[in-house]
Design a protein around this nucleic acid. Structure first.
Length: 715
DNA sequence: ATAGGGTTAG
């Protein structure tokens, strides 16, 4: 190895001496620079170390330290530092080389060594100070950078380099002081300082700070593209989308031009700013889109991915998303794939999973973001099958110990009906945060297991947050555990950080309303420190209506005003659809059960089932049937067409076909509330069949399990 | 000579 190294080096040296008659010393520096430029740091070092010591000039050292800084190569940097120390004592007090050392260590992320070099310098100049300040600023250490700037004032006058650097890590208060210093020193006119001031104020995410950024911007005599981009970014960061778009328009009319950063900043403004209504975004997006096409920037992955996000998140235009994504075919990377998967995760989870499969087939490796998105999609599916597959890949991908992904897994498994898998993930976790605990509590709540919730809550070894209490209260509310719920609610007043918020009140009022404790509900409403909103009123109104308490309803005229508002919040109403998973296949059923070849057989099974259930005391519940069905017989027929019953009949049929009757009956319906009739039906069916039946409605899972199953002769 | 400004697409 060593032989090869010296071989290369001597050959190189000979080459350098043959090319030029000028001294070899000079040629060494040139040679090093050439090698560094071509990215071959290793060869540059071989060459340097093999050169005679007297050729290892200050310039040669400088070139190598700079290369180490640029390539973030700490190993070579340290070795060169040692070499310098042992070979050239005279350079140990060289300010020029020490400055290079500071920068090298800082850029390589070793600010402690940078500081040490700085401290050991017998003499320092303005660059020494600036280099260390820059190091702290780039490491995000606001305090040290700021302190060093103050200390610097006693020794030498900071220039625009020091100020622009320190501003990159500054927040509002220190930033304002640096601004003051810039004004005092007359450095505010420097375009570097002014640009840094604009972005510093922008980072504060505050309207007043944005105004100060704007003042700096307006006062600038000369602006460049960075100035304009920083101003857009500042408005974007402070949630002032309209202003951001305004700046962009002025760029256009002033003929400033734009670049990739401009477009990316404007895209962020469009999907992040809440002051832009959908119509504004729609108009801007159209113009922006055509501009990116005209200028050719649409072919850049980042820009196209940003547009995908606007179309999906703000405009809900999924076909346009998909079109954009398809047009990216040559340059799709993992971020672009994740973008499209995120877009479809909620809107069309099946599609999101398909896209994930496609991405794997293109040999790209999903990363943390991809898993996080695809797990979101898993949570929207009817069975845990996909979640399991993704789980395996999460482990394979090396994210087994990741808290956030494990939390998503708990959520997905809970939503897919597998409480056991939730528990397994939760128990295996090494570090649990408040979201992990909340996800587990929500899982129990979703499955109506109130008795398991309180013990888990008491085991919590970290501070509960507002979501913790929502999980607890909603669990109590759905299970009708008013006393326990009220106890939890009252305990929330014990600490100022857990004081109930509007959504906690809504839960409690919903709970009291369900239990017909209207007087108490009114009392709670009267004691609320904030205005009750539509959600609170609807919680009470809903239960009044259900329990026929019209006298109480009269006093809630206030609520009628918010009716429209409530409507828009309601889950999208879908026709009753049910699914059941048999083996590896998911079967879908619509009310009425049309379009199925085995329709007749399913109906026969259902009739038989209903007959047996009636013998056990099942009485079809008419009240929940559609109101426009007049005839009793018709009503009953309608009930028997409920998609969940068809799905159950099908599952029973399939169970009988397979030699053992051990099919797990998982029965799911989405986005509609389980009705009383369905409840009675499933309860008796689980007894008759001797099976647990799991039903999911828009709210939660219902486990029907009758352990007294005496009569499983049905099979 | 050596030091500096946009933040990044999921």
């Amino acid at each position: 190895m060593l032989k090869t190294v010296s071989h290369i080096s001597i050959k190189s040296l000979r080459r350098f001496s043959s090319v030029s008659p000028s001294p070899l010393k000079h040629n060494l520096v040139e040679g090093l620079r050439t090698l560094v430029k071509s990215g071959d740091l290793q060869r540059a070092f071989s060459l340097f170390y093999c050169a005679p010591v007297e050729f290892q000039s200050q310039q040669a050292y400088a070139a190598l330290f700079q290369a180490c800084a640029e390539q973030r190569n700490l190993r070579h940097g340290i070795s060169l530092h040692h070499h310098m120390h042992s070979h050239l004592q005279s350079y140990s007090h060289d300010v020029f080389l020490a400055n290079h050392l500071i920068t090298m260590y800082a850029k390589c992320g070793n600010i402690v060594y940078a500081r040490q070099v700085f401290e050991e310098m017998p003499e320092r100049n303005v660059v020494s100070w600036t280099s260390l300040i820059t190091g702290y600023a780039q490491a995000g250490n606001e305090l040290e950078g700021f302190c060093l700037l103050s200390a610097m004032l006693a020794h030498c006058c900071p220039n625009e380099f020091a100020l622009s650097s320190v501003l990159t890590s500054c927040w509002y208060e220190p930033g304002k002081q640096v601004h003051g210093l810039a004004l005092k020193l007359g450095l505010h006119c420097s375009i570097y300082v002014a640009n840094a001031l604009i972005s510093m104020y922008g980072r504060c995410r505050d309207v007043n700070a944005a105004y100060e950024a704007w003042t700096v911007f307006e006062d600038m005599e000369f602006k460049n593209l960075v100035t304009w981009n920083s101003m857009i970014a500042a408005f974007q960061c402070c949630n002032l989308g309209k202003q951001a778009v305004g700046v962009f328009m002025r760029m256009h009319s002033d003929g400033v031009g734009f670049d990739r950063a401009t477009l990316l900043n404007i895209c962020s403004s469009l999907y992040k700013s809440s002051d832009l209504v959908r119509d504004d975004v729609s108009k801007c997006c159209l113009q922006l889109h055509s501009l990116t096409v005209k200028s050719g920037f649409v072919t850049q992955t980042e820009v196209a991915t940003s547009l995908v996000k606007i179309y999906s998140e703000t405009l809900g235009d999924f076909s346009e998303c998909y079109k954009l994504f398809m047009e990216m075919s040559q340059c799709r990377d993992i971020v672009a794939w994740t973008g499209i998967i995120t877009a479809f995760a909620v809107y069309d989870p099946e599609r999101a999973i398909l896209l994930f499969g496609q991405l794997r087939r293109e040999k790209l490796s999903p990363d943390w973001y991809t898993f996080s998105s695809v797990l979101k999609a898993c949570a929207g599916l009817v069975t845990a099958r996909h979640a399991l597959t993704i789980h395996a890949q999460v482990i394979k991908g090396g994210f087994e110990a990741d808290t956030v992904l494990n939390n998503s897994l708990i959520h997905a498994y809970a939503k897919c009906g597998s409480l056991d898998l939730c528990k397994r993930v939760f128990d295996d976790m090494d570090s649990r945060d408040v979201v992990s605990w909340n996800s587990m509590l929500k899982a129990y709540s979703l499955h109506g297991q109130v008795d398991s919730i309180l013990p888990v809550f008491h085991q919590m070894d970290i501070k509960p947050d507002s979501a913790t209490f929502i999980a607890l209260l909603s669990a109590c509310s759905h299970a009708g555990r008013v006393e326990e719920g009220m106890k939890i609610f009252i305990s929330m007043f014990e600490k100022p950080e857990t004081l109930p918020q509007l959504h906690h009140y809504a839960c409690v009022i919903d709970m009291l309303g369900r239990a017909e404790r209207f007087t108490e509900a009114e009392e709670v409403i009267n004691q609320m420190p904030m205005e009750p909103d539509a959600v609170v009123w609807s919680a009470l109104l809903g239960s009044c209506r259900k329990h026929g308490n019209t006298s109480a309803e009269g006093s809630f005229n206030e609520a009628n005003k918010s009716r429209k508002e409530m409507e828009t919040w309601r889950v999208k109403k879908e026709p009753g659809l049910s699914w059941t998973e048999i083996g590896n296949k998911v079967h879908e059923f619509a009310s009425g059960g049309h379009r199925r070849a085995d329709r007749e057989a399913i109906y026969k099974e259902l009739e038989r089932l209903i007959g047996r259930l009636k013998e056990m005391g099942y009485v079809p519940e008419m009240r929940s049937a559609l109101q426009d069905i007049e005839e009793e017989e018709q009503k009953e027929e309608h009930l028997s067409h409920h998609s969940e019953k068809l799905a159950l009949a099908f599952a029973v049929m399939e169970g009988r076909k397979s030699s053992d009757c051990g099919v797990n009956l998982i029965q799911i319906m989405k986005n509609i509330r389980i009705c009383i009739d369905c409840h009675n039906f499933m309860k008796l069916a689980s007894k008759l069949l001797g099976k647990e039946i799991l039903v999911r409605d828009s709210n939660r899972f219902h486990h029907f399990k009758d352990s007294s199953c005496s009569c499983n002769d049905y099979w």
